[in-house]
Simulated scan of single mutants.
Amino acid sequence: MVDVTTDKHTAEQRTLLALWAVPGLGPRTLGNLRAFAGGSLARLAACPVKDWLVEAPLPMPVRRRLAEVPELGFLADRVLERCAAVAMGVAFQGEPAYPARLAETEDAPPLLFYRGQVGPPRRRVAMVGSRHPDQGFLPFARSFARQVAEGGVGVVSGAAAGVDRACHWGALDAGGETWAFLGSALDALDPAQAKLLPHFLARGGVFFSELPPGVRASTTTFPRRNRLIAGASDAVLILRAGAASGSLYTAEAGRAQGRPVLALPGDVMNEGAAGCNALIRDGHARACLSVHEVWRAVGFHPERSVPPGEGSSWDELSVEARGAYQVLDRVPRSFDEVLAGSQLSPAALSSALVELELSGLVIQHPGRLFEKV
Rank of each mutant, 00 (worst) to 15 (best):
Y249C: 15
F74A: 15
G151H: 04
A149R: 09
V22H: 07
R115N: 01
V215N: 02
A67D: 12
N226F: 11
R63K: 05
G162I: 01
P260H: 08
Q326S: 09
S351A: 15
G360V: 10
F208T: 07
E337Q: 14
P27D: 07
A235C: 06
Y114E: 06
S359T: 05
A160K: 00
A166P: 07
C47E: 15
L262T: 07
F300K: 13
V125A: 12
T10V: 11
A194R: 15
R65Q: 12
Y249H: 15
A340L: 09
A145V: 03
L58Q: 09
T178D: 01
F200E: 07
V86W: 05
R216Y: 03
A230W: 08
L289R: 13
E210S: 03
R64L: 09
L344H: 01
H168Q: 12
L58G: 06
K195S: 14
G31D: 07
L328K: 01
V268G: 02
E316N: 13
N32F: 09
G119F: 04
G231K: 00
A274M: 13
R64D: 10
E310W: 12
G136D: 02
F113G: 01
N32C: 09
W52Q: 02
P139D: 09
P48F: 06
V153T: 10
G242E: 00
S247H: 09
L361H: 13
G73I: 07
R322N: 02
L25D: 01
G246V: 10
R142H: 04
G175S: 05
I229S: 06
P48D: 01
F36Q: 10
D234M: 14
Q135T: 14
A230N: 04
V118Q: 13
L211D: 02
E81N: 00
R304S: 11
S209E: 02
K8N: 11
Q147D: 02
V163K: 14
G231V: 00
L239A: 01
E12Q: 14
V49Y: 11
K50Q: 12
R227S: 08
R43F: 07
S245F: 05
S342Y: 03
C167W: 02
D77T: 12
I238N: 02
S130N: 03
L58E: 10
A192P: 12
R240N: 11
A232H: 02
D336H: 05
R122E: 06
G24H: 01
H132Q: 12
L237P: 02
A340E: 11
A244E: 15
G175K: 08
F335V: 03
R43Y: 07
R124F: 03
I238W: 03
V4R: 14
R14G: 07
L201I: 07
G154Q: 00
L102C: 04
S359W: 06
A159H: 03
G31I: 04
D164A: 00
